[in-house]
């Protein structure tokens, strides 16, 4: 059984590395294929030809493609994401400065969604057809359908402008934890609401399926308390599809919270990528996207490994993709 686990882990790691390499290759091709050269973007079209040639040489753009490819890969593997074409700062520093805000918002939002969505879904499943079930279904679908930046604008209007309960814009005064926390509440809620609805729907349908299984009937026949049946025996069975979606959710929020970041005037990876694209700032774009890819694949690796922690049957079928259902 240990061999199975190790084999599984190894095959997942290989896949992960391949995905990251694939992403790096795509990012590199982007800077080669896309029209408009980075040097012009940096120094402007009025620059002299001599100066432009100098900048091109500094950026290594005069080298043949394969040399640039090798340089790019070896630099990234050494942890060097390049230099910001506009400011001259290290890309790693630029990305690193916004990363904590993105991480904080992503994991808080997903955490909140799990904390609220899972019990809601369980309750709806165990009270199927009740008024609560119907109301929850309506609200869930509504929040899934409304884009998070629209929710963000409404939250801002209600809680900041009308009620004046929470300050919102920016990330707060450095070092003032309470101020920073206050300013994190609304963006987190804006991002989480849709996910709460999504997770509640997902958990509900998974739970309904599990609750019909014979092993749950066994537990009922032995008079096991309903809460124990729901939250111990059934929820663990319903967890796998939910966790799979959480992995996707983290990936989606990492680079996709850009509109919410703009509404609340917060720095973040999404915004960094957006700005980099607008400015044709390829090094920053490559660095930021690479970090998103990296965090995404690591999250999904953890997700995959958590399946085998939950389901002993996956542990024994070493490295196989198929989940028993």
């Amino acid at each position: 059984m240990m061999g199975g686990t190790a084999g599984y882990l190894a095959s997942r790691l290989v896949t992960t590395v391949l995905i990251v390499f694939g992403a790096m290759l795509l990012l590199f091709s982007l800077s080669v294929i896309v029209p408009g050269d980075p040097a012009t973007a940096l120094i402007g079209p009025q620059a002299t030809a001599a100066y432009k040639a100098q900048v091109i040489a500094e950026m290594g753009l005069d080298q043949p493609v394969h040399i640039r490819l090798v340089r790019f890969f070896s630099a990234v593997l050494a942890g060097d994401l390049g230099t910001d074409a506009l400011t001259g700062r290290r890309v790693a520093t630029v990305v690193g400065s916004v990363l904590p805000y993105t991480f904080l918002l992503t994991f808080l939002a997903i955490g909140l969604a799990v904390l609220i969505g899972v019990p809601l879904g369980c309750f709806a499943a165990t009270n199927r057809g009740s008024v609560f079930d119907h109301v929850l279904a309506f609200i869930s679908v509504a929040f899934i359908a409304i884009p998070s930046f629209v929710i963000a604008i409404f939250l801002l209007l209600i809680f900041t402008i009308w009620l004046d309960w929470l300050p919102v814009l920016g990330t707060g005064t450095a070092g003032d934890f309470v101020d920073q926390a206050k300013r994190t509440i609304l963006p987190t809620v804006a991002l989480a609401l849709g996910w709460i609805g999504f997770i509640a729907r997902l958990v509900r349908s998974s739970m309904l399926e599990v609750m019909g299984e014979p092993h749950i009937r066994t537990m009922r026949a032995y008079g096991i308390a309903p809460w124990l049946i729901t939250y111990k025996y059934a929820l663990k069975n319903a967890a796998i599809p939910t966790i799979a979606i959480l992995g996707m959710g983290v990936g989606r929020l990492l680079g996709g919270a850009v509109l919410v970041e703009i509404v609340f005037a917060r720095p973040g990876l999404g915004r960094l990528i957006y700005d980099a694209i607008s400015a044709r700032n390829y090094p920053v774009l490559q660095g930021a996207v690479l970090v998103v890819v990296l965090v995404f694949v690591i999250t999904n690796l953890i997700v995959d490994l958590s399946y085998s922690a939950i389901d002993p049957r996956i542990r024994t079928q070493a490295g196989r993709e198929a989940l028993p259902r």
Partner: peptide
Amino acid sequence: AMIFQDPMTALNPLF
């Protein structure tokens, strides 16, 4: 107490 027809599904696979 009860014993069921199909022992393959009467126990929870995750416990």
